[in-house]
Amino acid sequence: MEAQTNNNGPGMDTTGLKPVIEIEHLKKAFGSNVVLRDFNLTIYAGQNMVVMGKSGIGKTILIKCIIGLIKPDGGTLRVLGQDISKLNHRELDELRMRIGFVFQSSALYDSMTIRENLAFPLRRSHGKITGTIEERVREVLGNVGLENTIDLMPSELSGGMRKRIGIARSLMLMPEIVLYDEPTTGLDPITSDEITHLIMDLQQKYKTTSVIITHDVELARIAANQIVFLKDGIAYQQGTYDEMVKTSDPDLKRFFKKTKDTQNG
């Protein structure tokens, strides 16, 4: 047990692992608002990287750069060995099929049923999946425990269910990387806990590398191999959960205070 590299355990050993996301000197500004100044981070295969930081600090911008939704102003970004900025339309679409993205707002298509929502990523890339679209939709719905919602509209689901469907949709194409934008924000503690465990289970099942943006210290504690704290446009501090909790930095302390209290009391 102790010698094994546990994908879920904190502080996994990265020696000999393949880097899947390599970010160097990443810059992004909106006018005079400099969001990312000089951001550097390497994420390895199978790792769960948790990104933390204040609201509006640039966490969403960071993962939208990773999937090519936002063009950075400078720096290099290699994802699965490919330099994002050098890809043409088709190559970028092919790379995106290997990445799942779970949006903060779930971003389910309002005008489509759950079945159509889940089938949507397959409309251009059915070849990647064995079996019919219907089979795959049902399989992934089973993975998130919502088989009975297949014919419902997104507006008929609760916030927690929408999150699950958002996660299900990101898994349709068997991605190698999944990017989660605040998967538990706005949910009650019990539902948050369920989503946290769902993320962990699916990570095991699909063997993905995950980047998880969150303010949820409990999610970070359970999921993170590494935590990176984003501040002033840089990777301000990086370490395991235990290292981050012990830090003397006042900003970080405030972030992790909540769990320390619950653990001590």
Binding site: K64, L69, F101, A107, D110
Partner: peptide, 16 residues
């Protein structure tokens, strides 16, 4: 509303 709820982004990352 599709734009502000990120549905357009979601389409784009789905290769559409």
């Amino acid at each position: 509303s599709m734009k502000v709820t990120e549905q357009i982004d979601a389409m784009e990352v789905s290769g559409t």
